[in-house]
Design a protein around this nucleic acid. Structure first.
Length: 256
DNA sequence: TGGAATGTTCGGCT
DNA sequence: AAGCCGAACATTCC
C-alpha cells in the first residue's frame, strides 16, 4: 500500500487530526523490537506531521515518531481495533490506530530528524537527478527502488514512471542520454503528482486516515497488467524480475 | 501446493 | 567498491 503518493495522502488526511494534539499514551500490540522505543513520545504534543520518503514523521516537542507502513500498514483516525491492530496512539482527543497485517511496518521514536536517504522523488531537480544517474552503473529499476538513491518511489511508481518515460527497466543509469534522463525526471514528477491527486493506489486494501480508498490503480499503465495490451501500442505487457521484484514494461514502447 | 503481494535489511559473492 | 543475488521477516489470497 505505501509508496510516496499513499504516504503523502495519509499525511494530508491525518495531519488535521494530529496537529496540536497531545499523545497521552502509546499502546503497542506486537512482539516486534520497535515496541520498547516509543515510550519517549508519550506525553508530548504533536507540532506537525510530515513525510520523509515513505516515512510519516510526527514532529514532537522533543524528537519525532517515525512511522513506516511497510507493505500492509494503515494509519487511521478513530477506527475500530481489529486483529491486525499493532499500535494505538491515544490522544487528548480521539486516537490514531495503526493496523498492519504483515507486520513489516514500524513505529519508532527518534531523537533527531532522519536524513540518511537520497533526495525526495517529488522535490529533486532535473539537474540533480541527472548528475546522480550519471554516477551510477546500476539498472534503472533497481536504482529507483533504492531509497538511499532517491526517496519515496516503490515498485508501482518505478514501473509506471519508466513506462511514461519510455525507458527500459534494465537500462544502465550512467548510459542514459540527457534527453532520456530529463524525460525520466519529468515522468516521475508527473506520475507521482497525478497519483497524489487521485488519493494513491488502492491495491489490496489501502485506505487513507479517514478510511477512503485511492483511485490511481485505475490508471496503472503497466503495473500488474502482465499479458494485457499496452494502452499505447497494443503489444502485450511483459513481466520480468529485477532486484527480486516484479517489473512490468512494454517491450515495444520501452526499448533497451 | 506454490507463488506472489505496495518494503527493507543483511550477508555473501564478484 | 559497487552492484547483484538470495534469504529473511509475517500473513493472506489466489
Amino acid at each position: 500500500m505505501p509508496e510516496l503518493p499513499e504516504v503523502e495522502t495519509v499525511v494530508r488526511t491525518i495531519s488535521p487530526r494530529l496537529r496540536g494534539r497531545r499523545i497521552v499514551e502509546i499502546c503497542v500490540f506486537t512482539k516486534k523490537a520497535w515496541g520498547g522505543s516509543v515510550a519517549p513520545g508519550e506525553g508530548q504534543a504533536v507540532r506537525r506531521v510530515r513525510r520523509y520518503g515513505k516515512f510519516i514523521l510526527l514532529e514532537l516537542e522533543r524528537g519525532f515518531l517515525a512511522i513506516h507502513l511497510g507493505m500492509t500498514g494503515k494509519l487511521m483516525a478513530n477506527s475500530e481495533h481489529g486483529p491486525y491492530t499493532r499500535a494505538v496512539l491515544v490522544l487528548d482527543r480521539g486516537e490514531i490506530v495503526f493496523d498492519d497485517v504483515r507486520q513489516f511496518g514500524s513505529v519508532r521514536w527518534v531523537e533527531s530528524e532522519p536524513g540518511m536517504l537520497g533526495p525526495d522523488a517529488l522535490e529533486v531537480s532535473a539537474e540533480d537527478l541527472m548528475a546522480l544517474l550519471g554516477a551510477r552503473r546500476g539498472r534503472l529499476k533497481a536504482l529507483l527502488l533504492n531509497q538511499s538513491f532517491l526517496r519515496g518511489i516503490g515498485n508501482i511508481y518505478a514501473d509506471e514512471s519508466l513506462f511514461r518515460a519510455r525507458i527500459h527497466p534494465l537500462a544502465i543509469a550512467s548510459r542514459l542520454s540527457k534527453p532520456r534522463a530529463r524525460r525520466l525526471h519529468a515522468a516521475i514528477i508527473e506520475v507521482l503528482t497525478d497519483a497524489i491527486a487521485k488519493g494513491g493506489s488502492s491495491i489490496s486494501d489501502y485506505v487513507d486516515a479517514d478510511g477512503r480508498p485511492g483511485w490511481f490503480q485505475l490508471q496503472h499503465k503497466v503495473y500488474q497488467r502482465t499479458g494485457e495490451p499496452c494502452l499505447v501500442c497494443g503489444a502485450p505487457i511483459r513481466r520480468i524480475l529485477v532486484a527480486q521484484r516484479s517489473t512490468h514494461y512494454c517491450s515495444k514502447c520501452q526499448r533497451a
